[in-house]
Write a protein that binds this DNA or RNA. Structure first.
Lengths: 194, 194
DNA sequence: AAAAAAAGTTAATCTGGTTTAATCGTTTTT
DNA sequence: AAAAACGATTAAACCAGATTAACTTTTTTT
């Protein structure tokens, strides 16, 4: 039972590791504590790490030319988050990744990830499956962001991720759902009154 | 110079294959000709193949509860297309994948892909990188679909994928860009007149 | 080559969601 | 404990893009 037990469990959903492999893996990781409102990734800087959340809550968002915030992803305990585009291409980020709570993170650097592939090739599989699922999730999200009304999107979130509604402030939820805080507020009110 | 030379080249952007490995790979593929308007994937049926387009043009789309078509992806020569969610989870598809031109395809079945991973583990890497890039592309697309106006989206497409504008009919372009054909028509006209 | 079907255009009307703005909690900072 | 900053609510005015509908052009079928 170490600080890494939860990430090992997360990885073990898709691949099986020997004791030595697991040790090799964790030797390439670093843990990080971040305080609420701290940034893990910022535009212009290259995203150096894949980030796994041991405990806490983070979000990624970008700021459009209009100055508006667009929340891309929400993530809590046992989820991964990054600006993957920046990370995989090792190019400057376009997103912010911000802690919404004091959080404990586990990170792997791009360099160490490449080394990991050499030493424990199984991780090619892990990150393949991980990326495939990520791609599927983003696509599903895009699908409903274009085909559903604001109210339907909110209902879907209530049903599918009720924890998120409690853990993130409403302006973040609104921005994740692609609507203004004012409109979200109206929907919530409409629903209470019937 | 075989029917498979273009897919081998495509794969070789990310991994290096020996002659034997390449042969093993192609032995697990099948080629397929489809006529315009034919479906390669249909809702309710499990998507059996990853599809690479040797020559031709396809699109994937789904039909919302409102009966509207939402185009998810456009793909031409040397691109991959599928309902990846259905394929990777081997669950019923939600998308149509339809040929927009007579096309020549190369496909790998789910079974054969699993066998390929055993025999040529490098493909774990190929499909990892492939999925990562796919995820990044979908995310980029979602980003601009939520943060740009209809006119900006059209301009971006003109700049980035001018070939697509010539190869796909306008109702497909409009649906890909998330607007009605009427509105796309208005934009095009507005731009010609200045 | 005619008929039918599919794709594209134009314009008036309408609407889901934004903008603006004012008010009222509720945290955070000092 | 006061002040400041932040977050949430409410309501009126507004707008980007949808809807409806009538028409033209192009493609496909017979």
């Amino acid at each position: 039972m170490t600080e890494f037990s939860s990430i090992i469990q997360n990885v073990s959903r898709f691949i099986t590791l020997t004791e030595e492999e697991a040790q090799l893996f964790t030797s390439l990781l670093r843990t990080q504590k971040v305080r609420k409102k701290q940034f893990v990734v910022q535009p212009e800087f290259v995203c150096q790490y894949r980030t796994y959340i041991t405990t806490g809550a983070l979000r990624s968002y970008f700021i459009g030319n209009d100055g508006q915030e667009y929340t891309i992803a929400l993530a809590i305990d046992d989820w991964w988050i990054s600006d993957f585009t920046s990370y995989i291409n090792q190019e400057p980020a376009t997103l912010f990744v911000e802690a919404m709570e004091h959080s404990t993170l586990i990170q792997i650097s791009y360099q160490n990830e490449q080394a990991l592939y050499e030493k424990v090739p199984q991780f090619e599989r892990f990150f393949r499956i991980h990326s495939q699922r990520g791609a599927a999730a983003i696509q599903k999200r895009m699908l409903w962001s274009i085909s559903k009304t604001a109210e339907e999107r909110y209902e879907e979130m209530q049903k599918k991720y009720p924890q998120f509604l409690q853990r993130f402030p409403q302006y973040v939820i609104a921005s994740y759902l692609g609507m203004t805080t004012q409109f979200l507020s109206r929907i919530r009110n409409r629903k209470i009154k019937g």
